[in-house]
Nucleic acid binder design. Sequence first.
DNA 1: TAAGGTTGGACAACTTGGTTGACTACTTTG
DNA 2: CAAAGTAGTCAACCAAGTTGTCCAACCTTA
Lengths: 149, 149
Amino acid sequence: MEPVPMLLAMTYRALGDQFHDRLAQLGLEPLRPAHGYVFRFLKEKRATTVDIGHHLGVTKQAAAKIVNELDGWGYVLREPHPTDKRAQYVTLTTKGRDYLKFADNLWTDLESEMAEAIGADTLDTVKQGLAAYLRHVHGEDQPGLRPVW
Amino acid sequence: MEPVPMLLAMTYRALGDQFHDRLAQLGLEPLRPAHGYVFRFLKEKRATTVDIGHHLGVTKQAAAKIVNELDGWGYVLREPHPTDKRAQYVTLTTKGRDYLKFADNLWTDLESEMAEAIGADTLDTVKQGLAAYLRHVHGEDQPGLRPVW
DNA sequence: TAAGGTTGGACAACTTGGTTGACTACTTTG
DNA sequence: CAAAGTAGTCAACCAAGTTGTCCAACCTTA
């Protein structure tokens, strides 16, 4: 049996590849995982570029580059911060929210296919097991994302 | 509950970070995952740089860079190919085999800790589940490695 | 057995996705 | 109110890959 990290990485890759393939069929912009994480983050809360960088676990410069791309594609826009004249809030546009909804559906589909392939109960055990291990390692304070990409 | 890809990525990261931390404590060279995969590959079979590139799923140039590093650190050496004067076999040195043994022990430790944290039966279900999914997606012909790194 | 296509290895230029460092304008704190 | 800290931008750099080119050696194959 393959070692655990290999299994994790290959499964992650398999899922990601399928997601990307289906996305590419629609001729969307070449969004990378980091973009998706930004969407998900912005759905929750208003955030500045610095916030995003912190959430992704990269420097603010790297985050700024990503935000610039998303802005250029029309997925987000910047609006002035109400109290801090230096800062700007980055917010999702309608296009951004539409993309996120679409992506969520796609992920749900992929997870359903996985459940069908290996059994819903097995998938559930997998998820619970990994989540438990992460709690074991990190305690409650999850690390600033930055998985692999 | 977090979506599956996130769980996979974070768990992979958590394991990899711990591995790397413990390795770094020993002041070893900054080996990356790709190096480890090369070691494991070379333990099985004699291989040329091109073979290695194919196995890793990268170009031969990228593979050559990795082999050069490993050579510089004394983990591998090149020896002439018996029948093909262009080619060279890359083989593990004693230092390389020692490292591999050490790394294997470390991975075994980490997996044991994981088993302890979430239960050996749960870990087993996780492994079986992921392996089953990979078979479902890829059939028998595993893709040329290249997980995430 | 010579000719033409293929392959292993190396070198160079470029691309990507990040980094560190420096600077300005603004904010917060002692 | 002065000093320290922070948001955002610009620029230089770096790591790990890519493509493109080449040569020498190796297959075919006619």
